[in-house]
Design a protein around this nucleic acid. Structure first.
Length: 456
RNA sequence: GUGGUUGUAGCUCAGCUGGUUAGAGCGCUGGUUUGUGGAUCCAGAGGUCGCCGGUUCGAACCCGGUCUUCCACCCCA
């Protein structure tokens, strides 16, 4: 019997104790922020009915969905003709469930199913893993966590404001100082398409323009031409590509540039309102960057769109989101507007690691290790252990009777700061020897004194 | 999904144009010290060279397939 070495599925990872400590550090800051802003937690199942998921993310998205094979004889409904007509035709007969691809669609499904129970505006946050059958790369995994906060049931731009504020708070708590929150509005992009004479084709326009900082204006023009855009129309975009300056300067330029487009002007007004709200709140436009060429692929966005990039690191965007006027429409509930965004914890982790921004003392666990020499020490040690724990000191007793050196090595490896040593001297005098492993100082104290010393 | 790349000890990596028993550093275990860790010194354990097949007298090295890693495209957190 050959024993196979165990391995993980492509694009998935284990998280060891150190990694978990660091991940929880990030999770806690995000969770804290969501709660501070009045969001309530929601969890949904890892798997959804395939019919809930398909068709929401475009053709590309459908390909990236993980499908779950039906239980039992999953071939029982499949005919030879099905197999001949290919994978797509067979799929619905062998699989009716899939792993969630993001948190927004399950949220929309939840809202629709509970439309009469939820109070609007409904502010919820959700922190759960999602799965995508993508090719893994740096900062791109097949299983990763998203931390979503969305509001549905209101058109108020205060929601957009709050998203900016939450991003600022989280990044400031994480110690990130060099980043930018790119902000744009789908209506502005629609306006651009109108103004250059290709109304309704902003989606195509976006996909190409979005690559501007990556491949440059020249290549973007080539791509637009190959997508069937007229070079004369493309040329009209030149002033947009060259656009520089403060948010206000860019806005006032576009107000003029888009003056013939009703929807474009609406977009500019919305952006202006959000920035005004930011000022009213007492915050400012630091880190906020109105970026006319920010497009983002997701087709359901209709208003504001956000994306956060940390500068000078090799990771893509760490957060993104936007407003979608009719997300629940596909599930039969019309007229519910929503806006939301998501933090990518796994990418934030990679960024913090690359910038060495994790706090140094993360592996905080046990504070005191109780060590001893013989059986007599075990029973005395358990008494000491109970006293420590009753006083709220994280502590443990070395479970095996072992050489004191081995017990010390254990403490050292686990970065336990204090060791209590119990030998016949300590037991007879009803005391403990407390050693500070950092300084090497050791003193003999009563149990109570030792607890006080450790706590201070 | 398309193209490329990587895989040798727990970790980071050597290994000359295919040639006998595959090496180093770190880590690990034990000892120096049978009441004291992190330093030094000494000793030791540990490898189906990702997996399967092929070429060859002979393969870690060449060829094919497969899995994995990372990268570009696509897309995205």
């Amino acid at each position: 019997m050959a024993i196979k070495k165990p391995s993980l599925p492509k694009g998935t990872r284990d998280f060891g104790p150190l990694q978990m400590a660091r991940r929880n550090y990030i999770f806690d800051i995000i969770k804290d922020t969501f709660k501070l802003f009045g969001f309530q937690q929601l969890e949904t199942p890892a798997m959804e009915n395939l019919s809930t998921l398909t068709g929401k993310y475009g053709d590309e998205g459908d390909q990236l969905l993980f499908k779950i094979l039906n239980s039992g004889d999953y071939l029982k409904d499949v005919s030879p003709q099905d197999l001949e007509s290919g994978a797509v035709a067979t799929l619905s007969k062998v699989s009716e469930k899939g792993l969630r691809y993001d948190l927004t669609v399950p949220f929309a499904r939840y809202v629709v199913m509970n439309r009469n129970e939820v109070t609007y505006p409904f502010k919820r946050y959700q922190i759960q893993p999602v799965w995508r059958a993508d090719r893994p790369q740096r900062g791109r995994y097949r299983e990763f966590y998203q931390c979503d906060a969305d509001v549905v049931g209101t058109d108020s731009l205060v929601c957009e404001l709050e998203i900016l504020l939450m991003i600022k708070r989280v990044f400031s708590k994480l110690g990130l100082k060099d980043y930018s929150i790119k902000l744009n509005n789908r209506k502005v992009l629609a306006g651009l398409a109108e103004v250059i004479g290709v109304p309704g084709r902003e989606s195509e326009l976006c996909v190409a323009i979005d690559k501007l900082d990556k491949i440059g204006w020249g290549k973007v023009q080539e791509e637009l031409v190959s997508r069937g855009f007229d070079p004369k129309d493309i040329e009209k975009l030149q002033p947009i590509i060259d656009l520089k300056g403060s948010n206000q300067e860019k806005l006032s330029f576009l107000k003029d540039f888009l003056s013939s487009s009703e929807v474009g002007i609406k977009g500019i007004e919305e952006l202006q309102s959000v920035l005004d709200l930011l000022a009213s709140y007492g915050s400012d436009e630091t880190y906020v960057d109105f970026d006319v060429v920010l497009a983002r692929g997701l087709s359901y966005y209709t208003g504001a769109i956000f994306e956060v990039k940390v500068n000078k690191v090799s990771i893509g965007s760490v957060s993104g989101g936007g407003r979608y006027d009719n997300l629940t429409g596909v599930f039969g509930l019309e007229g519910v507007s929503g806006v939301g965004f998501s933090f990518g914890v796994d990418r934030i982790y990679d960024v913090l690691e690359e910038l060495d921004l994790f706090p140094k003392d993360q592996l905080e666990g046990t504070k005191v290790l109780v060590t001893y020499f013989d059986e007599e020490g075990v029973s005395y040690g358990l008494r000491v252990l109970a006293a420590l724990r009753n006083s709220g000191v994280e502590s443990e007793l070395y479970p095996d009777l072992a050489k004191i050196k081995k017990q010390f090595t254990y403490a050292d490896k686990k970065q336990i700061p204090y060791v209590i040593v119990l030998g016949s001297e300590e037991i007879n005098s009803n005391k403990v020897s407390l050693k500070d492993l950092k300084t090497g100082e050791q003193t003999t104290l009563s149990i109570e004194e030792a607890i006080q010393a450790v706590k201070s």
